[in-house]
Simulated scan of single mutants.
Amino acid sequence: MDETRQRIQLVRLLYVSRAVGPQTTAVTDSILSVAQSANRQRGITGVLCQGQGLYLQVLEGERGVINALYNRITQDRRHQDVQLLLLEEISQRRYADWAMAHVLLADDDPMVQLHHPEFDPYSAPGASVLKMVADLVAKGERIRKTSV
């Protein structure tokens, strides 16, 4: 077999969607519980930012696995207005230690209000939204991490 075919191609995918119905703790915990278990089995890592009626999610893993998961998300009735913001090949994972970290996007979060006063992931460049997610994670507030 060709050496390039043997290498696993890692990708990072970022999408945004609007929640269908209220974003309650029970709904979010249910999503995270299922995601974290399945992600461990499939070698997926990432972070879910949730709040203000939005989901922003970064997924990392093997290209085919990530594509299949994104396809399921676009069909999930808990999401509407799903838009792919960024898909890039990567050589290294940014969230390698987390099956799925969770960041709450609160209305009063200074990252949303002050540093990004016109926060709208639907109109912002994908790279800018990815940086905002990285900044939120680096800030470390309102984050729950579950390791791989």
Score class of each variant (00 low, 15 high):
residue 42 R to P: 00
residue 25 T to R: 08
residue 51 G to P: 09
residue 32 L to W: 05
residue 51 G to N: 10
residue 40 R to G: 00
residue 49 C to K: 02
residue 78 R to Y: 02
residue 44 I to G: 04
residue 83 Q to V: 12
residue 84 L to C: 13
residue 27 V to F: 00
residue 59 L to C: 14
residue 87 L to Y: 04
residue 41 Q to K: 11
residue 14 L to V: 12
residue 83 Q to K: 09
residue 82 V to L: 07
residue 19 A to C: 02
residue 90 I to C: 06
residue 45 T to E: 05
residue 87 L to P: 03
residue 42 R to G: 01
residue 84 L to W: 05
residue 38 A to Q: 12
residue 82 V to R: 00
residue 20 V to W: 01
residue 56 L to D: 06
residue 77 R to Q: 11
residue 47 V to I: 15
residue 62 E to D: 15
residue 43 G to Y: 06
residue 82 V to M: 01
residue 46 G to K: 09
residue 58 V to D: 10
residue 90 I to D: 06
residue 19 A to E: 07
residue 46 G to E: 13
residue 80 Q to T: 13
residue 71 N to M: 04
residue 53 G to L: 10
residue 36 Q to A: 04
residue 43 G to C: 10
residue 31 I to V: 15
residue 43 G to W: 08
residue 60 E to T: 13
residue 76 D to K: 10
residue 66 I to P: 10
residue 30 S to F: 01
residue 15 Y to K: 13
residue 19 A to P: 06
residue 13 L to T: 15
residue 65 V to T: 15
residue 79 H to M: 09
residue 60 E to I: 13
residue 61 G to I: 12
residue 61 G to Y: 05
residue 41 Q to N: 07
residue 50 Q to E: 11
residue 15 Y to N: 15
residue 25 T to H: 02
residue 43 G to N: 13
residue 20 V to D: 04
residue 18 R to K: 13
residue 23 Q to W: 01
residue 20 V to Y: 01
residue 86 L to T: 15
residue 60 E to P: 14
residue 61 G to H: 07
residue 62 E to F: 02
residue 20 V to M: 06
residue 21 G to T: 12
residue 30 S to P: 01
residue 70 Y to Q: 05
residue 53 G to Y: 06
residue 15 Y to V: 14
residue 63 R to H: 06
residue 73 I to Y: 02
residue 26 A to Y: 03
residue 49 C to Y: 01
residue 80 Q to E: 13
residue 85 L to R: 11
residue 90 I to G: 04
residue 59 L to H: 11
residue 40 R to L: 05
residue 29 D to Y: 03
residue 37 S to A: 12
residue 23 Q to T: 12
residue 32 L to R: 04
residue 19 A to V: 08
residue 55 Y to A: 06
residue 44 I to C: 08
residue 53 G to T: 13
residue 35 A to S: 15
residue 54 L to S: 13
residue 51 G to H: 05
residue 80 Q to F: 00
residue 38 A to V: 12
residue 77 R to G: 05
residue 41 Q to A: 08
residue 20 V to E: 10
residue 70 Y to H: 14
residue 69 L to I: 15
residue 42 R to W: 03
residue 52 Q to C: 10
residue 23 Q to M: 14
residue 42 R to Q: 15
residue 79 H to A: 04
residue 38 A to M: 03
residue 63 R to N: 05
residue 17 S to L: 07
residue 90 I to Y: 01
residue 71 N to S: 12
residue 26 A to C: 08
residue 64 G to N: 10
